[in-house]
C-alpha cells in the first residue's frame, strides 16, 4: 500500500511541476473573467453563457491535462531508465499500474477542482450560481470521467507507444462524449461492416456522456436522482477496473 502511495505522490507532483496547468488556469481565468464582464444591453444578470463557456473550458483543460499525464508514465520511466529500479521489490507490476493510474487521476482531479472553484467564484460574482446540488453532481460525475479516462490512457500506454495511447484515448473520449448516445442509431442505419462495428463501439467503449451534467447546470434543470449517480459510479469503477486489469495482463509479462 505504501508503495502505491509513494507512486501516487510522485505522479501527483508532476502536474504542478510543469507549466501546462498554470497556463490552463490563467487562460481559463482570463477568458471567464472577460466573458463575465461582457454587458449585453446593460442587463446584469445574464449568466448562462458564462456557465457554458466556463464548464466547456474546465472539462477540456482537465482532459487535456489528464490524458497525457496518464499516458506518458510508463514511457517516462523507461526513458529515464528508472522502471527496472522501481519494479525491484517491494513494488509489483500491479501496484505500479494502480499507483501510476491513481496518481494521474488524483493529480488531474486536483487540477479540475481548482478550475471548478474558479468557475464557481466567477458565477457567484455574476449573482446566479445555480443549484448547489447540480454543481456537486456535475463535479462528481466529471471526476468519475477523469477516473475512467486516466485508467483508459494508462492501460493503452501498456499496449502502444505513449503518443499513440494519448491520441487513441483522446479519440475514444471525444467520440463517446459527443456521439456515444447516438452510436446505436448510426449502427442501425449503416450497412456492411459498419453495422457490427458501430454496435461494438456502442456497447464496448465507456459512455463518457454519462458523466456530463453540464446541460442541467447551465440551464437550471432539476438534479438527477442519487440512485442514478450510484449506478454511474458503479459503471465508472467497473470500467476503471477493466482497463487497469487489461493493462496488467499486458504488462505482467512484458520485458522491461
Amino acid at each position: 500500500m505504501s508503495s502505491v502511495r509513494a507512486l501516487v505522490g510522485l505522479v501527483f507532483l508532476e502536474i504542478y511541476r510543469k507549466k501546462d496547468f498554470y497556463v490552463a488556469l490563467i487562460l481559463m481565468a482570463v477568458i471567464l473573467v472577460y466573458a463575465s464582464q461582457i454587458e449585453v444591453y446593460n442587463f446584469e444578470n445574464i449568466v448562462r453563457y458564462v456557465r457554458e463557456i466556463g464548464l466547456m473550458l474546465i472539462y477540456l483543460f482537465s482532459i487535456f491535462l489528464a490524458v497525457p499525464l496518464a499516458a506518458r508514465q510508463l514511457a517516462a520511466e523507461r526513458d529515464q531508465r528508472t522502471l527496472a529500479v522501481l519494479l525491484a521489490k517491494p513494488v509489483t507490476r500491479g501496484q505500479f499500474i494502480v499507483g501510476k493510474s491513481l496518481g494521474a487521476f488524483l493529480a488531474s482531479l486536483s487540477a479540475f477542482l481548482i478550475f471548478y472553484s474558479v468557475f464557481i467564484l466567477v458565477t457567484l460574482a455574476k449573482g446566479k450560481m445555480g443549484s448547489p446540488v447540480n454543481l456537486i453532481q456535475a463535479g462528481y460525475l466529471f471526476s468519475l470521467s477523469l477516473l475512467v479516462v486516466t485508467a483508459m490512457a494508462s492501460a493503452l500506454s501498456y499496449f502502444l507507444t505513449s503518443p499513440a495511447a494519448m491520441t487513441l484515448a483522446f479519440v475514444f473520449y471525444f467520440l463517446m462524449s459527443l456521439f456515444g448516445a447516438r452510436f446505436d442509431r448510426f449502427a442501425e442505419e449503416s450497412v456492411g461492416l459498419a453495422r457490427p462495428l458501430g454496435k461494438a463501439v456502442y456497447y464496448l467503449l465507456p459512455h463518457f456522456e454519462f458523466f456530463d451534467l453540464r446541460q442541467r447546470v447551465i440551464h437550471d434543470w432539476d438534479p438527477v436522482s442519487w440512485g442514478l449517480i450510484a449506478i454511474i459510479t458503479a459503471y465508472a469503477v467497473l470500467y476503471t477496473a477493466l482497463f487497469l486489469f487489461s493493462g496488467w495482463l499486458k504488462f505482467r509479462r512484458q520485458p522491461l
Binding site: I38, V40, Y41, F43, N45, I46, V47, R48, Y49, G180, A181, D184, Y202, Y203, H207, E209, F210, D212, L213, Q215, R216, H219, W221, D222, V224, S225, L228, I231, I232, Y235
Partner: peptide, 27 residues
C-alpha cells in the same frame, strides 16, 4: 445505455419564463 442517457440529459419541453430567464438568450 439509452435509459441512462435519458436520465442524464433533460429532454422535457420547456421555455424560459420571465425577464430574469429570457435575457439569457440575448448574447
Amino acid at each position: 445505455i439509452r435509459w441512462i442517457d435519458r436520465q442524464i440529459q433533460a429532454t422535457e419541453h420547456r421555455h424560459l419564463e420571465g425577464v430574469d430567464e429570457e435575457v439569457e438568450m440575448l448574447p
